[in-house]
Simulated assay, not measured.
Amino acid sequence: MDEAEASQSKSTCFIQVDYTTICWGNDTGSDCKHEQHVDIICHEGGSGGSSGDNGSGSESSPWPDDPDESDVGGSPDDGGSSDGGTCTELIPEPGSDCEPIDPCESDNPPFYCEPDEEEDEEETLCLGDPVANPEIAPSGGWNYPGGQYGHTRNGGERFHDGIDIRMEPNTNLFSAYSGEVVHTIESFDPGEYARNSYGNTVTIETNFVGETIQLTYAHLNSVKVDVGDIVQAGDQIGLSGETGNANDEETRTKIIPHVHIKGRLKKNESLSKLDPGSYLATKFNSDGSVKESCK
């Protein structure tokens, strides 16, 4: 078969993509889903007719059948192009051996594609929060007020100097605000218990709306910064953990894994207590529910 006959034997194929939107619900709101329908339509080379119109009764493959596979660099099975290159086009040229690329894997995916979960997680980290989507860690596993600042434990008799944000051990911990690292403790091994101790800590001093505040992040398994470092909001400063008195295997009291955040107001070189929850982007009700989201 000469070159002219080989070119006439190739199929001409193109992809037809239809989108369907199906909605259900009432006038005030509805749920919708989007469906994609992909059809590969081919016409035989030479006669110019489609495989369904030429009366032969045989169906052609969506991809052209080369008369001599030894003359090409790849086949429809291995995804190679007709010249041995790599297939990179969303809709291949008619007559090529390439398979179409999934639209959702292209550089510009259609609206119906599922979003990337890792990108979504990164986007939920807000300025003023140490972790994405923060939650209160209740004291004793049940007392949500006890996970917040103030006389919130033992029926109001015991003062809790900070706010506890639920975090599984070895979760990335981020600085809520930009500032300077003014103090660290990193002498504890991961999970090491010590009574009445915050374990490994990082303290960052920040200028906040005309005030100088210090936020201390406690019970860390690992510290990733040094004293004197300048950090930006959202920079990783450590890994959460169970150091100090946050290890329930030693205390025999139910402790939800968390990062304890303590706040101090600095004025004239003196430090006074403050509620760190007032400075977080996400605000909480006394029952631990979200009062004001950062989103």
Rank of each mutant, 00 (worst) to 15 (best):
T251H: 07
E269Q: 13
E135D: 13
A233F: 10
N247P: 01
V209M: 06
S289E: 11
C126Y: 12
G141H: 12
G73R: 01
D107R: 06
C98E: 03
S272R: 00
D107A: 15
P138E: 06
V231I: 14
Y19N: 05
A218L: 02
Y149D: 06
K33T: 15
T206M: 11
I204T: 08
V131N: 08
W24V: 07
P67M: 11
P76Q: 12
V202I: 14
A4W: 07
E35G: 08
S175E: 05
S11E: 09
I256K: 01
E93W: 08
G140R: 09
S56Q: 06
S11D: 05
H34P: 00
E119S: 14
S11N: 12
G156F: 12
D31I: 06
N285R: 08
D129S: 15
S270W: 07
I136S: 02
S289K: 05
S106K: 03
D287V: 05
N200P: 02
E186R: 15
G179F: 05
F14W: 12
G79T: 05
H219W: 03
K295F: 15
G29R: 04
S81V: 03
S293V: 03
A137T: 15
S178R: 02
G128V: 06
S293E: 10
Y19R: 10
S30C: 14
G228Q: 08
G95F: 06
E3G: 04
S106C: 04
V231P: 04
C23G: 11
V72P: 00
I261G: 00
C104W: 14
E119C: 00
S178A: 15
P138M: 10
D129L: 12
I185P: 00
K262M: 05
C294H: 07
M1H: 10
P190E: 09
N172M: 14
D120Y: 05
S139G: 05
I101P: 00
E211W: 07
P257H: 10
A246F: 03
S11M: 10
E93F: 02
S60T: 13
N54G: 02
S270K: 07
R264S: 04
E168K: 15
Y279K: 03
Y193E: 02
P257A: 09
Q8N: 13
K10F: 08
D2C: 10
S178Y: 13
G73K: 11
I40P: 00
E89R: 12
S222V: 01
N170G: 05
D77S: 10
Y177S: 08
D275F: 01
E192H: 06
S47N: 12
